[in-house]
Amino acid sequence: MSQATFRIWRSEPGGGSGAFTNYTTEISEGMVVLDAVHKIQAEQAPDLACRWNCKAGKCGSCSAEINGKPRLMCMSRLNSLDLNEPVTVEPMRTFPLIKDLVTDVSWNFRVKKGLKKFKPRKPDAADGTWRMAQRDVDRVQEFRKCIECFLCQDVCHVLRDHDKHEEFIGPRFLLYTAALEMHPLDSDDRLQDLKDKNNIGYCNITKCCTKVCPEHIHITDNAIIPLKERVVDRFYDPVTRLLRMITG
């Protein structure tokens, strides 16, 4: 059995002062960072706060920054890290701290409430059902793989460095909007909101969100860029503007 040291952020309640504390613990084959945190919790620091549920990369609860990178603790294998140095585990920086590794992500739930909901077109069949081809839902299914870990929000510089939480909805909800806009059954229109309320223009396509997505969703290429194109086509393309002026 070998040992490794974890440098974990510990804070006072209310997210006030805090500091890193080093914990050395025994590790075994196949362990992930979350296992180490649990072991430390059970043996050395029973009041260490960490959020987790499924431990299989499916619920998106255990988001943290490991050696500075936004990742899920449950999917970060120790054999992928340099254990000669202490492994730094700290909370997501974009959200207010609650305690230790736990942050207040409630902003995300408020943002979703402000977005237009799914509005299906009239059913295709007399029995109230619809017909959709698999190829027409493939793209939306990619977006719906999102586990709401909010790592993309954490890494997005518009939120992280510029703190535009009141003006910008972040990659998670641009993806959510794309899933609705490209849903074969949806009949609503979100382009005006994307431009004016959600400020899709703030995104300058650095693709940081795509890089950290644990579900490997092509957030920038498949969701954000097509939405940006739709907004440009509608509001900024001179030909369509001219056509609109003529046709009213």
């Binding site: 299906p120 109230g128 959709m132 849903h183």
Partner: peptide, 15 residues
């Protein structure tokens, strides 16, 4: 669920 936005895998005839 489909009316509420769920996107299930499809049969060749779209169901």
């Amino acid at each position: 669920l489909e009316a509420w936005g769920a996107v299930f895998d499809r049969t060749p005839d779209g169901r």
